[in-house]
């Protein structure tokens, strides 16, 4: 019950902050549109079978990440990095003010805090995911004249929960660890890392085995990969990256919950 009261407060705080609309909803949509326009302006060379035998065509093929069926899941995952940012700012701001001190003196438990921070951002993340996929569908109809697979899109939402938990967990972790001045800076590093190492703007496989190995050590690449597999209906290819993402999410979320509990009793 206390967790739900705290959830309600956090949702109100989030919805009344105009920046959350810009970053959590506006920015993913803008990026989806801009990247589609960029993709439309890239000339598509015809590659003959003879040419493929003599030249490395991976760089040319890499531009497929800008195709709407690849771009939409990528942007949906990238949008969650902004959820992470806002979650981090929310936790660190509460800690920097004496608001949390007042709540520590109340009957609230650590689990109430964790649930109260997680639920609102999970709801916003789900809303962001739905809006991004609806926008992707509209763009696909306009640009390609064909629909994305609606069934796979619907399946993508519940299966996106591990990614949501992952990014919210990172947000809570750094919001608990850092003050409200340092937290946004660290989150920016993660946003950049997720974009580059997650393969949102580039085809990681086309960049060589070493790059794939590096990216595989972090959760972002797996998170983007399984989201793309779901939309493509490649359920066999989805299993491993989904499992890896879920493990990362569980470990990071558990670490953030333990850190929060520890920090709340830091001087005891």
């Amino acid at each position: 019950m206390r967790a739900l009261v705290f959830t309600s407060r956090n949702i109100k705080e989030l919805l009344r902050n105009p920046l959350s609309y810009i970053f959590c909803l506006g920015l993913p949509l803008v990026m989806l549109i801009v990247m589609t326009l960029i993709n439309a302006s890239i000339p598509k060379p015809e590659i003959s079978a003879e040419a493929e035998a003599f030249i490395d065509t991976s760089a040319i093929k890499a531009t497929t990440v800008f195709n709407i069926d690849k771009l939409t899941p990528g942007i949906a995952v990238f949008g969650m990095t902004f959820i992470m940012l806002f979650c981090c700012i929310s936790v660190s701001s509460d800690r920097s003010s004496s608001f949390l001190t007042r709540l520590y003196a109340s009957p609230m438990k650590s689990t109430d805090f964790i649930v109260g921070y997680t639920l609102p951002f999970a709801i916003i993340a789900a809303g962001q995911f739905i809006i991004t996929y609806i926008a992707g569908e509209i763009i696909s109809l306009i640009v390609n004249g064909e629909s994305l697979n609606i069934g796979y899109m619907l399946l993508g939402l519940p299966l996106a929960v591990p990614s949501m938990i992952l990014f919210i967990g990172i947000g809570i972790f750094f919001g608990t660890l850092l003050n409200d001045k340092a937290a946004p800076g660290i989150c920016s590093v993660f946003i950049t890392a997720a974009a580059i190492l997650g393969g949102i703007w580039m085809d990681i496989e086309a960049m060589g085995d070493a790059w794939v190995t590096i990216c595989s050590c972090l959760p972002f690449y797996h998170s983007v990969k399984y989201a793309r597999c779901i939309l493509a209906g490649d359920f066999g290819g989805m299993v491993l990256p989904l499992t890896v993402t879920a493990i990362f999410a569980l470990v990071i979320f558990a670490a953030s919950a333990l850190l929060f509990a520890h920090k709340s009793k830091a001087d005891k």
Binding site: R9, K12, E13, R16, N17, S97, S98, F99, T101, R102
Partner: peptide
């Protein structure tokens, strides 16, 4: 310090 939720 004043402990209130500013946006509420």
């Amino acid at each position: 310090e004043t402990a209130i939720a500013g946006n509420l």
